[in-house]
């Protein structure tokens, strides 16, 4: 039974691992830390898995545990300076469809997001994942109105970082 559960979990996680990579990428600044956080999130997901009832998609359920691990449980400081030394950065979000100018803008924007604090990053992450404010407020445990207000402030902050 537990072997079976383990199999299901491993399969689900493997198929949805990009969500976790995205969070790790956002909250760490080198590859070792990325792997370390990925492992901790995996452990926490596995511990919480028996509570997963399949009412929501695995990915939706995984957001919460993964974000909680990155923000709350992970011991090493995740506060970091924006860095481009990360090898993954080079390939990050590159797509032939984009023109060079757009790609530059996206990169700069991503670097700006990395300068935000842990909570702001979580809001932006959920926003980028196209979660609505109901989801965001439930995940973080703040009111919907306040989530909206905060998101607008973050947009202002990002603008300032991009155009000092």
């Amino acid at each position: 039974m537990s072997d079976n559960l383990e199999q299901i979990f491993v399969k689900q996680l493997k198929d949805n691992q990009n969500i976790i990579h995205k969070i790790c990428r956002l909250y760490t600044n080198d590859e070792d830390a990325h792997k370390d956080l990925f492992q901790e999130i995996t452990i926490q997901l596995w511990k919480a898995f028996p509570k997963f009832r399949g009412e929501s998609k695995f990915s939706t359920w995984a957001y919460r545990v993964a974000l909680n691990t990155a923000i709350t449980l992970y011991r090493k400081s995740t506060r970091n300076v924006a860095t481009t030394s990360y090898e993954g950065q080079k390939h990050f979000l590159s797509n032939d469809e984009y023109n060079f100018e757009e790609e530059e803008q996206i990169k700069l924007m991503y670097q700006a997001v990395q300068q935000l604090n842990d909570i702001e990053k979580a809001l932006v992450f959920l926003y980028l994942e196209d979660k609505d404010y109901t989801d965001i407020s439930e995940t973080l445990g703040i009111s919907e109105v306040n989530a909206r207000v905060k998101m607008n402030r973050i947009k202002g902050k990002l603008k300032k970082i991009l155009n000092p």
Partner: peptide, 27 residues
């Protein structure tokens, strides 16, 4: 700019090194 990032983000074009099932078992 944020919406540009969102669009790129949604397309899921991130190239992350994929973790295999075996590695997840170990974790």
């Amino acid at each position: 700019e944020l919406d540009l990032l969102k669009k790129a983000w949604q397309k899921d074009t991130h190239k992350f090194e994929q973790v295999s099932e075996g590695e997840i078992y170990k974790m």
